[in-house]
């Protein structure tokens, strides 16, 4: 099974960097623990874009990771289903929309999850806020457990903290 963990966000917008930071740190954590990570790949982006539909079509399981403005929990992982959009802007392309293009254009539907990490500060400034940093740490611990069990256990449920 091929897995993609794909974080996106703008590192110059404080907590909007949560998706990218998540991927960097998760990759480091897993590489420290395992000798080879042959079935997991990592990628980052400034924002989702149309060609990401082609990218995810090559994986069996995909985890999108993004900062969340309105998430009530510290973090959350939810299963995604394809969703067409009526109003389309390259700056508000949702993962479910990318999934929809993937299904329509390439005829495949990878198992896809959205990892949402709650953020608080969005000014033109670098560095995560302390609260977002704490949420990121919690999300990384939980996701590491989650992804490890994913390799061993075929059935898993969306997790809500």
């Amino acid at each position: 099974m091929k897995i993609l963990v794909y974080g996106f966000g703008n590192p110059a917008r404080q907590d909007d960097a949560l998706g990218i930071e998540f991927v960097h740190r998760m990759q480091q954590m897993l590489e420290r623990e395992f000798d080879t990570l042959s079935n997991i790949e990592f990628d980052i982006g400034y924002q989702l874009n149309i060609e990401d539909a082609l990218k995810i079509s090559r994986y069996d399981e995909v985890y999108f990771v993004d900062a969340s403005y309105d998430e009530k929990e510290n973090f959350n992982i939810v299963k995604l289903y394809p969703k067409p959009l009526q109003h389309y802007s390259m700056h508000s392309v949702e993962p479910a929309f990318i999934l929809d293009i993937c299904r329509e254009l390439y005829g495949v539907l990878p198992e896809t999850y959205m990892v949402k990490v709650r953020g608080y500060e969005w000014q033109m400034k670098e560095g995560l806020s302390p609260a977002a940093e704490q949420n990121l740490s919690l999300a990384l611990d939980a996701f590491q457990y989650y992804i490890e069990s994913d390799i061993q256990i075929s059935e898993k449920q969306p997790m809500i903290t």
Binding site: E51, L54, L85, Q86, L105
Partner: peptide, 29 residues
Amino acid sequence: EPARRNVIALAMENKELASQGILMRQFGQ
């Protein structure tokens, strides 16, 4: 109607055009 004026509608009705657009963008990237 708005539901037809989006890229999914384009992809469904003209897959070759939509696929070419994605691959041209990928090449540039």
